[in-house]
Simulated assay, not measured.
Amino acid sequence: MLDVSNSAERPYADGKILRRVTDGVGIITFNNPEKRNAMSLEMWEGLGHALVELRDNSDVRVVILVGAGDKAFVSGADISQFEKTRHNAEASEEYSRRSEAQRALLATYPKPTIACIRGFCLGGGMQVAMLADIRFASDNSQFGIPAAKLGIAYGYDGLRNLVSLVGPSWARLIMYTGMRLDSTEAVRIGLVDRVLPDAELWDATMEIARTISGNAPLAIQAAKITIAQVLKDESHRDMDAIKAIGTACMDSEDFREGRTAFMEKRKPRFKGR
């Protein structure tokens, strides 16, 4: 098991992905500021390694995704790699296959995830942000998917997530034009959940992360599983999974601890079992 509360920063992808743990909160940093945190294939794979380590650390109850510096969350894919990795349909399919595992990992992540967005959040950065459970943004953020300006097709999963957040009409406008949205527009249409002054963004994100970390992990897992099933077509919903996690909650030590703490008028100490 990984170190408990406060760990040193661990690098992946030649230091362009960083992972650390602070007071039970896992933090993954996209650390490519000279390219506005543009994502290379190696960074996608490093992201996957960091996510797996935080997933398997029982002391981590929530994960924050954040970009290094003040210019960008993730400004998109590293276009300088395109001639090598995405120069035609076959190469692009291989690129997608190698990065798909990391996107799938984030899409089905068992712990709550928060995207802390400052500056540019474009293209592949939007894909990462939309896969997070919660999105907080600074008031100087910009959002967009410039696929139409690059002549590439944005993937099905990314567009499904975009439509689920902003609806089909806004998804069409964003995709057809490649337009940029400021944070005011992004929060108005539901692309992000909260906009804060830039200087307050990190503290507000950490406050929410610590609040989540202090709540009962099984109850949060139940909410995450159930919401995911609600979003599926009725014919594909796993009602047995919802029932199983509900039973696990009711039979857990945490449920007994929650009741006891309430009666004793103290803060509960949840263990996730």
Results as ranks from 00 to 15, higher is better:
1 M>V: 11
1 M>I: 08
2 L>A: 13
4 V>N: 14
4 V>E: 15
6 N>I: 10
6 N>H: 12
11 P>Q: 08
13 A>M: 12
15 G>N: 11
22 T>S: 13
23 D>S: 15
24 G>C: 02
25 V>W: 04
26 G>T: 11
26 G>N: 11
30 F>A: 06
30 F>I: 03
32 N>R: 06
34 E>G: 00
35 K>C: 02
39 M>Q: 08
40 S>W: 08
42 E>N: 10
44 W>C: 01
47 L>C: 11
48 G>T: 03
56 D>S: 07
62 V>A: 08
66 V>P: 00
66 V>C: 05
70 D>W: 05
70 D>T: 15
71 K>Y: 05
71 K>T: 14
73 F>A: 03
77 A>W: 05
78 D>P: 00
80 S>R: 15
80 S>P: 00
83 E>R: 10
84 K>L: 09
84 K>A: 09
85 T>P: 00
87 H>C: 05
89 A>V: 07
92 S>V: 09
93 E>S: 12
99 S>H: 02
99 S>R: 13
107 A>G: 03
107 A>R: 14
111 K>T: 03
112 P>I: 11
118 R>Y: 02
118 R>Q: 11
120 F>N: 09
122 L>K: 03
122 L>M: 15
124 G>R: 06
124 G>H: 04
125 G>H: 04
127 Q>H: 10
133 D>F: 06
134 I>C: 06
136 F>Y: 15
140 N>D: 11
141 S>C: 14
145 I>E: 04
146 P>E: 06
146 P>R: 06
148 A>L: 01
150 L>P: 00
150 L>S: 01
151 G>H: 09
152 I>K: 08
153 A>H: 13
153 A>T: 14
155 G>R: 12
155 G>I: 10
156 Y>D: 15
157 D>R: 11
158 G>H: 08
159 L>D: 06
160 R>K: 14
163 V>G: 00
167 G>R: 10
171 A>N: 06
172 R>A: 10
172 R>D: 13
174 I>K: 02
175 M>L: 08
177 T>N: 07
177 T>D: 10
180 R>V: 12
183 S>Y: 07
184 T>A: 13
189 I>D: 12
190 G>L: 04
190 G>M: 05
191 L>W: 08
191 L>G: 05
194 R>A: 08
195 V>C: 11
199 A>P: 00
203 D>T: 07
203 D>L: 04
203 D>A: 12
204 A>G: 10
204 A>M: 07
208 I>F: 14
211 T>K: 15
211 T>Y: 14
213 S>Y: 01
220 I>F: 09
222 A>Q: 12
225 I>P: 09
228 A>F: 03
229 Q>P: 03
229 Q>H: 05
236 H>Q: 10
237 R>F: 10
241 A>K: 13
244 A>F: 00
247 T>R: 13
247 T>E: 14
248 A>C: 02
252 S>T: 07
252 S>N: 07
253 E>I: 04
253 E>Q: 08
258 G>P: 05
261 A>H: 05
263 M>N: 12
263 M>C: 10
266 R>M: 01
267 K>W: 03
267 K>I: 14
269 R>G: 00
272 G>W: 03
273 R>P: 00
